[in-house]
Design a protein around this nucleic acid. Structure first.
Lengths: 130, 130
DNA sequence: TTAATGTTTCGATATTTTCCGATGTGACTA
DNA sequence: TAGTCACATCGGAAAATATCGAAACATTAA
């Protein structure tokens, strides 16, 4: 409360960006690993990584490493301001984000290896071309 | 509700800026004319004008012309999303904004002519220098 | 009309942000 | 030990934004 102006602006900037807001909204419905996010949003992995770096800097996102994977998630409600909670809720209601969430459901059913592991992914693509 | 992503980002960007957020917060406690804002924030008038243009574009601010003065104010609560209401409330609680509000009180007591009219302003400055 | 004044727009520059391929890093695996 | 993989960081060019004085515009007063 009554934090400073610069800090508040930095936090708002962190979510004032199409990709970053989409990523945040996506994580709003549960933890994902970085490659899942990149796959769902169809965006270069380095872009996702940079988006996550900003969201982490702003304190909105946590990470958990597991082997070579990095799982990211929104920090607990109690750790973010009511304002951000509102932004997150509104973002999750966007129609673009609903579409993303449908894709996430499919990706989760397949499991991480099928989505992220290059070899398996390539094999799948091959099969699709037959 | 369930507006589109681009629009939501544009609105967030509009307030993700130190001057624009300060101006918005200042107007949160009542209508002011442009020159009052410039005086209180000690910022070139053209900068204030540009900040207000963005806030108007985002739909956060209304204007009312009266002679050569332009009075600006935050749009009614019912016209802005709960998220912006939250942002406004949080901005108004910032310590920098409290200081601005103290200055606004003084400026309002003096009245617009004493603050804005160049001649009277110059005379006042002269007097201060003895 | 002419001068003065509040406001907006323009112009020009400086700074920041965005974007993505290439490269680097650390961890698993054959 | 190599090779593979997920992820982070770097490089650097293009685009967007910030900033503010100067000029333009609109209204009022002399």
């Amino acid at each position: 409360m009554t934090q400073n102006l610069r800090l508040m602006v930095e936090r708002l900037k962190a979510v004032s960006h199409p990709l970053r807001l989409r990523v945040l909204a996506l994580l709003g419905s549960g933890e994902l690993c970085v490659c899942q996010v990149a796959e769902v949003l169809q965006v270069p992995q380095s872009s996702v990584s940079e988006a996550l770096r900003e969201l982490r800097r702003a304190g909105f996102v946590n990470e958990r490493k597991e082997g070579r994977w990095v799982f990211v998630s929104v920090v607990p409600q109690s750790e973010i301001s009511p304002v951000l909670q509102g932004i997150l809720a509104e973002a999750m209601a966007l129609k673009e984000v609903h579409q993303d969430r449908d894709r996430v459901a499919k990706v989760k059913i397949l499991g991480i290896p099928a989505v992220c592991c290059k070899a398996q992914k390539a094999a799948k693509a091959e099969a699709a071309h037959v």
